[in-house]
Amino acid sequence: MAKLIPVPDDLSKPFWDAINEKRLVVQNCTGCNTMQYPPRAACQHCGSDKFEWKETSGKGHILSFFVTYDGRYQRRIPDQPYNVAIVTLDEDPGINFYANLGGQPPRQVPVGAAVEVVFEEVAPGQLIHDWKVVS
C-alpha cells in the first residue's frame, strides 16, 4: 500500500517523532486535563495553550467505516477498493482516528470490534499509525 506521506510541522513534529518510536501520543491540556487529537495550538475545551504529550493505551474500537472504490488521491488508486474506518480511543471515545485496517477484506469491517494500534512505514524513516482488529 503506497499511502500518502505525512509532512510534520512545528506543532506536529513531537507527535510524528513519537510515532516513529512506535508510541501513539495525543495532546493533553494541563489546564483542564482534556485529551486532544489532531494537535491544535489551543485547547478546544478551555482555550489553554499548555499541553503535555500523553502516551495512549493504543487500544480502541471501530465506530464506522466506508470502502473507497473511486477515491481522489492518486497515490492510493492502485489500492482500491480499501476500507476506511473510524476508530475511537478507549480512554476517551471522543478522540478518533482514521484507519485502513490492513488485512480486513473490503466491506468486512466488524463495527464495534476492539482494535489496537500498529505502525507502518510509508517512507524511509516515516511511520504512521494504523489499527488492526484484535482477535
Partner: peptide, 15 residues
C-alpha cells in the same frame, strides 16, 4: 504523494 497541513491527519489513511 505528501500530506502537509490539516491533510496529515486524514490523507494517509483515507480517500
Amino acid at each position: 504523494d505528501f500530506a502537509p497541513g490539516p491533510r496529515q491527519w486524514s490523507a494517509p489513511w483515507s480517500s
